[in-house]
């Protein structure tokens, strides 16, 4: 809340660029990840360091085996680095135990998957609600917020539907609403358009764009160039290392960032 206010204040004071003022929400520092596979050590990540700024939209690319999935798993607190530090929202999560990591995921992260990963026996609104049931302490105004988010992603009229009754694009919108419900610091998207046709892909990307413009930090793994082109920065990985970092456009000055309602 205080961060949002600061963004607005910066806008009013008319600073030339908000970039310097932007907070780092996630910092990866010299992270390595080593797997043991068939008696051999496989270095999936080899000294990766990146900062993710608040309001950033980053695409991670790379061929298979480049370490992009491993990086996303680490960013998503689903895995711990072998060495190095990972600071998320000011907390060093590299050495946290399983339960604390679960809480961190529930509090700071939103997930969007390639295959939507909705829970089949739950309705649209119940799927959106799932992360709320793991908030300790519980967030106030749960159901109401879910309804607003469903309306936000354009599914206000299908609240009671089951995932099987929705198209792929609609399912991914439910997943996006679900990723927003806990008001996360970072939204992690793993090939969010991988299962969609190109028209629907661009609709989903429009939605992510809009969220980014509204101030959301998004990290997305993709192997499609046209999808990656919609991100602000593109990080290419090769053999567990950062190969190139390119910037499609500058980070919008804080003044242009619409204030969060």
């Amino acid at each position: 809340m205080s961060d949002d206010r600061r963004l607005r204040d910066d806008g009013r004071t008319g600073l030339p660029s908000a970039t310097r003022e932007r907070r780092v929400v996630a910092r990866v520092e010299k992270v390595t990840k080593v797997y043991r596979l068939g008696g051999h050590d496989v270095r999936a990540l080899d000294g990766v360091s990146i900062d993710f700024l608040e309001g950033d939209f980053v695409a991670i690319m790379g061929s298979s085996g480049s370490g992009k999935s491993t990086l996303l798993n680490l960013l998503g607190c689903l895995d711990r680095p072998t060495t190095g530090r990972y600071v998320l929202a000011g907390e060093d999560v590299a050495s946290m135990d399983d339960e604390t990591l679960s809480r961190i995921r529930g509090r700071y992260l939103g997930f969007i998957f390639q295959s939507y990963n909705l829970i089949q026996q739950l309705s649209v609104v119940e799927n959106i609600e799932v992360p709320l049931s793991y908030q300790r302490p519980p967030l106030p105004g749960g159901r109401e917020r879910c309804l607003k988010l469903a309306a936000l992603v354009g599914l206000g009229g299908r609240l009671g539907h089951r995932p099987t009754e929705l198209s792929g694009g609609q399912q991914q919108r439910v997943a996006i609403a679900r990723a927003l419900v806990n008001n996360p610091q970072v939204i992690l998207a793993d090939e969010p358009t991988g299962n969609l046709d190109s028209a629907t892909s661009h609709e989903i990307m429009d939605l992510l764009d809009a969220l980014n413009h509204a101030g959301r930090t998004i990290v997305m793994v993709t192997h499609e160039d046209d999808i990656a082109a919609r991100a602000r920065r593109v990080i290419r990985l090769r053999d567990g290392r950062i190969d190139t970092v390119s910037e499609n456009r500058p980070l919008a000055p804080a003044a242009e960032v619409p204030a969060l309602p």
Partner: peptide
């Protein structure tokens, strides 16, 4: 694709009641 309506805001965790 434009966001339909404003993003709802969640008050950060209320004190433990």
């Amino acid at each position: 694709m434009v966001l339909r309506g404003a993003l709802p805001r969640v008050a950060r965790r209320a004190p433990d009641d």
